[in-house]
Computed example of a mutant assay.
Amino acid sequence: MTLPLKGLDAPLRALRLLAVDHPHLPAPAVSVSTIYPDRLELSFHDGLDAFETWRDALRIAPDRVEHSVHAGGRTQVLTAEVDYAGARLCLNGYAKIPVPVEERSRAEVAS
């Protein structure tokens, strides 16, 4: 059975409240899915500053943030989750990890 739009009430309500309460914060990439109908994902792909701004605004403690590295060590990822207005709010922040100069030099020589 297909989920009706009403089934996404929680994340859509949370998004509406975030837009009203924090209109000055950086705009995220927003994801709402019928697969996880209670989840609202806010993602930031241009570094971690916007992630930290939102984390602070939502009063998520720094020790609740998880850190991982993806893409063969080239992307740093921060994630945090909090309950907000009846939805599970997931923050995701992505930042490129600079390639050390010595590795760039070796790669250039190998080319």
Score class of each variant (00 low, 15 high):
Leu25Glu: 05
Ala27His: 02
Pro28Leu: 04
Ser31Asp: 15
Val32Glu: 03
Ile35Lys: 15
Tyr36Met: 13
Arg39Ala: 14
Leu42Glu: 10
Phe44Thr: 02
Phe44Ala: 00
Phe44Val: 05
His45Val: 07
Asp46Cys: 07
Gly47Pro: 07
Gly47Ser: 08
Asp49Pro: 00
Ala50Gly: 01
Glu52Arg: 09
Trp54Pro: 15
Arg55Met: 10
Arg55Asn: 08
Ala57Ile: 05
Ala57Thr: 05
Arg59Gly: 12
Ile60Trp: 01
Ile60Phe: 01
Ala61Tyr: 06
Pro62His: 07
Pro62Ala: 11
Asp63Met: 04
Glu66Leu: 09
Glu66Gln: 14
His67Ile: 11
Val69Tyr: 00
Val69Asn: 01
Ala71His: 13
Gly72Met: 11
Gly73Ala: 01
Gly73Arg: 01
Arg74Ala: 11
Val77Glu: 01
Val77Met: 01
Ala80Arg: 06
Ala80Asn: 09
Glu81Cys: 10
Glu81Gly: 10
Val82Ile: 14
Asp83Trp: 03
Asp83Thr: 06
Ala85Phe: 08
Gly86Ser: 14
Ala87Leu: 13
Leu89Met: 06
Leu91Asp: 06
Leu91Cys: 10
Asn92Ala: 15
Asn92Trp: 14
Gly93Tyr: 01
Gly93Phe: 08
Gly93Glu: 00
Gly93Ala: 05
Tyr94Pro: 03
Tyr94Cys: 01
Val99Thr: 14
